[in-house]
């Protein structure tokens, strides 16, 4: 997992955006692995921190659009949690570890593709 990028996506919006992305002919960079969760609301600090600690370069979380979470506010909570961890990482001056979350509608394959690519560029995974 060293030098790789992890995408965590939810089974609803995130998954559909990813499928849309591939159906439009976009492909993931090779150093990227994917992991599916029912809802991004399940992500917690410990899981993310320990994953980063194990050597992954960055974690990109793809959730549902804000007003469209199947579980009401799982995505919003995840967004806030990730904001919290981002702050922790930057306060601790931890270089080269990145984490980001964005929300996608099921039709936003292209935006997901460019978001992942931007992020991969930022963390240096190609």
């Amino acid at each position: 997992m060293e030098e790789s990028l992890l995408i965590i996506y939810c089974s609803e919006g995130g998954r559909k955006a990813l499928q849309k992305m591939s159906s439009e002919g976009f492909r993931l960079p090779s150093g990227v692995c994917t992991f599916e969760l029912p809802c991004t609301g399940r992500i917690n600090d410990v899981m993310l921190m320990e994953t980063l600690q194990n050597g992954v370069r960055g974690i990109f979380v793809a959730g549902c659009r804000e007003e469209n979470c199947k579980y009401l506010d799982g995505n919003k909570r995840a967004l806030r949690r990730i904001k919290r961890i981002k702050k922790l990482l930057s306060d601790a001056g931890i270089e080269g570890k990145h984490i980001e979350m964005q929300t996608f509608g099921p039709d936003e394959g292209k935006r997901l593709y460019s978001a992942i690519n931007d992020f991969a560029g930022k963390v240096g995974v190609s």
Partner: peptide, 14 residues
Amino acid sequence: CQGCGSCAAECPAE
């Protein structure tokens, strides 16, 4: 319960 996991994610005592 709908199984979203917000409780598990926020529980301070794990």
